[in-house]
Every structure is written in structure tokens, then in C-alpha cells.
Write a protein that binds this DNA or RNA. Structure first.
Lengths: 365, 365
DNA sequence: AGCGCTTTCGTAAGCGCTTTCGTAAGTCGG
DNA sequence: CCGACTTACGAAAGCGCTTACGAAAGCGCT
């Protein structure tokens, strides 16, 4: 294991400034008990020498850590990378460092990462995820985090309620409803729902919104095929194949996030099913590439970068007795992947499986 | 600043195992001087109690830090987030934590982040970037990192040579050449180059490859318009607008990364210029969405995730006297954004600026 | 002048760990 | 059966910092 360099110590600064170690420490920490004159002298010497406190020593002695741990499902998922970008942005402004961990979409793993970060004595833990499926893990996590908070640790969660911590939360239900209303308003009645794993509260809330929209049109979730798969691109692919097979008359697909919507679009493209002429598709999140997809994706915009910032802001504030909730805006962005429902009902036969009529086949390797 | 919790201490484990602090430390560190019997007893107790060493104390005492610092331009840029994903993956397997910093594409900032990480005494520094424009900053960074390495720190860079450290490096020149040959082979002769800022060595190398391809066809870089802009999506937009204005007869655009290529495609779409029928476009990197773009993008595939892993692997190995270079594969992926050069020369008049003939206008907000 | 009070600063005690050093056993040849 | 080694472990000295705590000095008050 590599060793960090030696580096300037506080005592060097103190000596150079002609004061004791303790005084130098106080001066740099900005606490009182030091005359203004001495304080500024110390600060100046420190500046000149380019002194930076050893964070390990500082944390060990003072018990205060300046690093924030961020747990995401996967950092190369655009949804999470944008959140991470926001966190890092603000952390940098505040002179904090950010530890990123992957939970890999696995609750057990997420719990392990939380434990790990606590053991690492980070001062702040941010959990960006979609909630637990497993209630045991859920309550265990809540317990662990409660202990951590009792010990002075700060916690905020992003995109989920629960865990007894401050939360930055979009109105997933309103978003789902907007999506449903948009499609229903375009005349679609044979809508399929590509949902993530059914335990994620994100999925539950977004589905509830869709259900509300359906209800307004005299329909219910029972009337639409709902396919639960992984909350990622591949999940969208699998779900779409199943929908095309089992419900070939579908005219619109709601994917509960953009990642799955990308999988949906990919399958439709491969099958040569024109979007939106024969099938409308919507996503959720508005990841930055959503507007560049083929076709550009109608979706609900979530301010991921801001969400990251807000979560860290929340965690940085003095804690309150009750967990705070901070809403984020969400907004329907209409692009090219949605259009009016086809006038004539779609053919009852499944889409052709052979070579497709469209211009050129993607060489998706 | 939040305080990390108290937590189990090594002495607790030692007492429970009926040995001294020192013996427990040795046992858990796996060094010899401890009988096998005692060692296993200590390990078992530690396991049972769920003991995790306080990394701050450990680092302070032993001088060894188990966190790796990763500097990227911007973590929500897919190129970098995929690299980060690879680093985090391997780090997690190895029980290391990852600190992520943004350089924001600014060499001065990058240097600042390096200094910061060194001050934070991380054990490993990974720099993913494209090299410095400013030679002063470059040599300063090299000096700082050399001192860090002398002190036992490990350094590896990703996607650039230089800095006197181990490097994971794609053959950017070969990639550029493959791109050029692909387009030239399709009959394109009026090719424009959307390059990033001219100081990045990534840009220089990729351009050199393109130049080599041109040479084989009796052309040179002097014959093609080269637009240097920011190495991001917006840069691609700006460059494309300029190319369309100043060189309306262009039939193919080479963007030196996918981010810029996305900007190129966006402008072409807005202007209603069909790709690839009237204009072919290629990118470089093959970020994960490249195949889902409108149209899907012909590009050079780089194994970003592996590059992240490899860089950390390199840094974890015992250092060598000379910096190592580890090549990464790169491979042309042909998709829908390239096609034969239009038979008739493009019209000399600029593309229509008004409403476009294609199906529907993106509502890019 | 003498008292308590505040302000300013130094001394020293850790934070939890690694590691050097010393010591009590055990090993061995003679 | 004894000195010279080896082996297994404990005591203690830090790593660089923060933060009680206490001493010294300056202040107004009686």
C-alpha cells in the first residue's frame, strides 16, 4: 500500500510564526481565544508555506471528517453520474472531498457500502438510490444510519423517501401522471408499462401517477400490461420484446426511466417499428442524451445536478429533529418519440421478425 | 462539520481475544511474529464483532492510505463516468475507496486538485484527462507528482502520455486513421474536422491519425477545414454551424470525440440535413449511448471501463524505474451515421435556415 | 493595593493505530 | 544442563492534530 508523503506539519507553521502548536491550531481553525493580530500572522505564515493540515490527524484528533460518501447504483449510469456531478460541484466549492461507492442496484450491497463508509468515518453520507425491496435490509439500514446520525454523522437521501433522513425528492407521482395524461390525451388507449423492479419506491410512485391518469380516463392499471424488469437499458429491451409478443396491439409504451426507454427504442428500431407513427414511447428523468436519441425522447425532466447539490446542502445544514423533505421540480418535455395514436388499430399479427424495412440496420455489437 | 461515530476499537478486539493491542494489530495485518493459533483467534473475534479499523488512525500511524484519488474533467461526461465506473469497480474489489475530483477541463484546476489530493494523503492518484495545454502547468504538475511518487505515492494517468507516470493509453493515432480511411473509402473528399482544443494531446494524436489517412489519398490536413472548439457537445454544435456556413459543400464531419459528435448531429438534425445521405458523421470513444443516437454513431470504440480498471491495476503494482505504458484496444464501429459520399456535389448555397422538411422538430429546451 | 474577572496563550493529554524494542519462553548444540 | 539463538508476545513511543486545562497578564472594581 502506498504511503502518502511526509508534508509540512502544523508545528512547522507554529514555530515559524513564533507561537505554540495549540495557538496555531486555534488560529487556523478560526476559533476565538486568539488575538486578531496573532491569528492573522499564523494564517499568513501558513499561506506562505502552503500548509495543508493532515486530514487523517485532524479527523483522528477532532473527530470531524471533511469527506462525504456518496452511494449510487452505478456511476456510469447517466442518472447517477449527473447527481454525482452536482454533489462534487458543491463539495468542491466547500472544500470537501467526495467518496463514491457503487451499490450495484443490490440492497445488501448498499447496506454494506453504508457500513463501510461509516467505518471509514466519513462525516456525511448521501444515498442516491431507489429504496430497498427487502424490508429487513431496509430497517437494518435505517438502524445503522440512525446510530450514525446519533454519533454526529449527517445523512441525506436522493430520490427516495425513507431511511429516516433528509430527502431530496421529485414528485414521481405527478411525473407519472403527466406522462399518462400526455399519452392518453394523444388518443392512446393500448398503453404498456415498462416498470423497474416492483419494490423500488420510485417505481411504485411513478406507477401510482400513471394509474391516476388512467383513472381519469376510466381505465386502471389492471387494463394495461405491466412488465417488471431491471431498471436499466437491458430491462427495457426485455420488456419490450415481451410486450410486442404478448400485446402486439400496443400503441404506446411508458418506461419508468430513460435508461429503460433507451432499451425500448433500441428494440423498436431493430424491429423496424416506426416511432412515434406506430408506437409512442416515453421515459422518465431526462438524462442529458435524451434529446439526442433516435428519436429524441419525450420524458419527465428531473434536475439531477441540482438534486445532488441540494442533498449535500441539506446534509450540511444543522440537523433538525424531524427529517426534512425537499421537493425538486419535474416537468414534461415533449420531443419526437410521442405522437397521436394510430388511427387504425395496429395489426393483430406480431411485428415481422425478419430483416426490417428501415434504411439500415444498426451494427450494435 | 459532522463527527464520525465512535466505533469499535482495536483494543476491544484485543481484549476480547485475550491478547495485547500490538498482537492484535499484527494478527489482523497478517504479519508474522504471531502464532497461527493466536492469529486465527484474533481474526475470528474481529470478524464476530464486525471490527473495521479506523482508517484515519491507521494512516496516521502507518503512513499508508487506502484511498485512491481520481481526477476527471467532469464525472457526468459519459467518457469519464465510464472510466470512473471501472476504477470504482476494481477499487471495491480491493477494499479501496475512491475520491473523485473534477478538474472542469481546466489545467490550473487539475493541478489544484492534484495538490489537494496529495495534501489529503491519498495513496494513489489517477488522472484521467487529456493533457495540459499550458507547458508551465504541465511541468509543475510533473514536479509535484514526482515528489509525491518519491514519497511513496502511486500515480497512473488515463488517456494521455506525459506526467512521467504509468499510463493507460489508446492508440489515438490509429483510431484517427481508421476514421479517416473509413470516410475516404466511402468516397468522401470534402471532410471537415471538429477538433477539441488544440493543446490536448488526445486531439493532437487523433488529428495525426486523420492526417495519415488523408496523406494516403493524396490529401493533407491543410486541405480540410479544422475547427478547434471545446471538447464537449456544445463545442460540436458551434463547430458545425461554422462549417456549414463556411464550407457548405462538406460531405463528412469527423468529430474527435463522441460528445462533440452529438453536438454535430444535433445541429444537422435541426437544420434538416439528412445523415448520412447528405452528411456523414463520425465520433470517437464509443460512449454507451453512441448506438442509440439519431442516427446511431459510427465511432472508434475505446474500452473506457477497462481503462479505468487497468489504470488502478497499474498503480497497485510495485513501481518500476521507468513509467509503463499499457495500450488499450481500439476498434472502428460502423453504424448508421456514415454512408457513401453523395454522388452529386452538395449545393454551393448554404443549407436552408428556415423550418426544416423533416418529420418533426426537436423541442430541445 | 488587592480582589476577582476576562482574555490570551502554552502545556499536555489524548484520538486509534502501527511499529520498534525489550523480555519471557522455547530450541538447540555441545 | 548451560549459553547463544530463535520465536511469540507485551509495553510504549509516536503519527499530526484538537482541545481540555492551567498559567500569566490585563482589566475594573472596591
Amino acid at each position: 500500500m502506498p504511503k502518502p508523503g511526509p508534508g509540512l506539519r502544523l508545528i512547522d507553521v507554529a514555530q515559524r510564526a513564533g507561537v505554540s502548536l495549540a495557538t496555531a491550531s486555534r488560529a487556523l481553525a478560526g476559533r476565538d481565544g486568539v488575538s486578531a493580530e496573532v491569528a492573522s500572522r499564523v494564517r499568513q505564515v501558513s499561506e506562505e508555506l502552503g500548509y495543508v493540515a493532515n486530514p487523517y490527524a485532524r479527523t483522528l484528533a477532532g473527530g470531524s471528517s471533511s469527506t462525504v460518501g456518496l452511494i449510487v447504483h452505478q456511476v456510469d449510469d447517466p442518472y447517477f453520474s449527473e447527481i454525482a456531478g452536482g454533489v462534487i460541484q458543491l463539495a468542491d466549492e466547500q472544500g470537501l472531498l467526495v467518496q463514491i461507492c457503487h451499490s450495484g442496484r443490490d440492497p445488501g450491497n448498499e447496506l454494506r457500502q453504508i457500513r463501510n463508509l461509516i467505518a471509514q468515518r466519513v462525516g456525511i453520507i448521501l444515498v442516491a438510490g431507489s429504496g430497498y425491496g427487502d424490508p429487513d435490509v431496509e430497517s437494518e439500514a435505517r438502524t445503522v444510519l440512525a446510530g450514525y446520525q446519533r454519533g454526529g454523522g449527517r445523512v441525506a437521501v436522493i430520490g427516495r423517501h425513507a431511511l429516516g433522513a433528509d430527502a431530496v425528492l421529485p414528485d414521481n407521482e405527478a411525473g407519472g401522471q403527466a406522462l399518462g395524461e400526455h399519452l392518453l390525451g394523444l388518443g392512446h388507449r393500448r398503453i404498456a408499462l415498462v416498470a423497474g423492479t416492483p419494490e423500488l419506491n420510485t417505481v411504485i410512485d411513478r406507477m401510482a401517477g400513471v394509474a391516476a391518469a388512467l383513472r381519469a380516463y376510466g381505465l386502471s392499471l389492471a387494463d394495461v400490461p405491466v412488465v417488471h424488469t431491471d431498471f436499466v437499458r437491458e430491462g427495457g429491451r426485455i420488456a419490450t420484446e415481451r410486450i410486442l409478443r404478448e400485446h402486439p396491439d400496443t400503441t404506446a409504451i411508458i418506461a419508468l426511466n430513460d435508461a429503460m426507454a433507451m432499451g425500448v427504442l433500441a428494440v423498436l428500431r431493430e424491429r423496424g417499428i416506426p416511432v412515434p407513427d406506430r408506437m409512442s414511447v416515453v421515459g422518465f428523468d431526462d438524462v442529458s442524451v435524451a434529446g439526442d436519441l433516435a428519436p429524441s425522447l419525450t420524458t419527465i425532466r428531473l434536475p439531477m445536478t441540482d438534486m445532488g447539490r441540494m442533498a449535500l446542502e441539506l446534509a450540511l445544514k444543522p440537523p433538525t429533529s424531524r427529517p426534512r423533505r425537499r421537493p425538486t421540480g419535474q416537468q414534461l418535455v415533449i420531443r419526437d418519440s410521442t405522437g397521436p395514436a394510430p388511427a387504425s388499430p395496429a395489426p393483430a399479427s406480431p411485428a415481422p421478425a425478419g430483416p426490417v424495412p428501415n434504411k439500415r440496420q444498426a451494427s450494435h455489437p
